[in-house]
């Protein structure tokens, strides 16, 4: 479903992605973890070309990423993305946030789009907030709106870029519950996160990155119980100790 081959990226002198290969099968849930600065967020953002790459090939559903323009917009419509900072459209109501893409990109009628949006809002548990503005919602609620907004496009794959890092602890669970539900429903997902609990319960595979490289890939059980690299062991030691 998603294939990265020999991807290289530099920020000036900094080599942020070094020869990255990653293949994600349809319905697979891949969790990307690693210390900050390891390039995992950048990796996630290259998949819908919010970041460009310098070398290599990225393909989604067998189609190579277009450079710019309409074709790229078409591809992005098929790739849902959830950001660390929610990025809910501040000037639109919750319902409008969810219907904007279906109406403008998928050319659905307003009535159809709103019906589907309300279903999705129900699914993420915030149907009561449909007519409010983002600023009236908590962070956890906003992030669930963001997930509903992405799902409204009927994406082939969902990217999550540290979706719970900006949330207060008591709100993390409500977002993770939605994500677990989504994973069980068969969605192809690439999730950059520090939530090891989510990785254990929902992931098919864990990818560990460090210094712009994929250092280790394994099933969650294997990775957490028996990491093969020193760096992964070191990293797990630091985050699991407290």
């Amino acid at each position: 479903m998603v294939a990265l081959d020999g991807v290289q990226k530099w920020f000036g002198q900094l080599h942020v992605l070094q020869d990255v290969d990653l293949h994600v099968a349809p319905g697979e849930v891949v969790v990307v973890i690693g210390p900050s600065g390891s390039g995992k967020s950048t990796l996630c953002r290259t998949i819908n070309r919010l970041e460009t790459i310098d070398e290599g090939v990225i393909a989604v559903d067998g189609q190579k990423l277009p450079e710019e323009g309409k074709a790229l917009a078409g591809l992005r419509a098929d790739v849902g993305m959830v950001f660390q900072s929610f990025n809910i459209f501040a000037h639109k109501t919750i319902l409008e946030n969810v219907t904007l893409g279906p109406i403008k990109v998928r050319k659905q009628s307003r009535a159809d789009a709103e019906k589907r949006a309300r279903e999705l809002l129900t699914r993420v548990g915030i149907e009561a907030q449909a007519d409010k503005y983002p600023a009236q919602l908590s962070g956890g609620q906003q992030q669930r709106v963001a997930i509903a907004r992405a799902l409204a496009m009927e994406p082939k794959v969902m990217l999550f870029d540290e979706p719970t890092s900006a949330l207060d602890p008591e709100m993390i669970k409500e977002v993770l519950d939605v994500m677990v539900d989504l994973a069980r429903g068969g969605m192809t997902m690439i999730v950059v996160t520090h939530e090891m609990g989510f990785a254990r319960t929902a992931a098919d595979r864990v990818v560990f990155m460090s210094d712009g490289r994929i250092v280790e890939e394994n099933t969650p059980e294997e990775f957490f119980s028996n990491p093969s690299s020193d760096r992964a062991r070191d990293f797990l030691g630091k985050i699991l100790k407290h």
């Binding site: 917009a73 993305m81 000037h91 904007l100 963001a146 992405a150």
Partner: peptide, 21 residues
């Protein structure tokens, strides 16, 4: 900048992104 990124990530073109968001 996240507003524009979110707009583009749901498939809006540059023009739609400017106009709508």
């Amino acid at each position: 900048v996240g507003q524009a990124e979110a707009a583009r990530s749901i498939g809006l073109t540059f023009g739609q992104c400017m106009r709508e968001v």
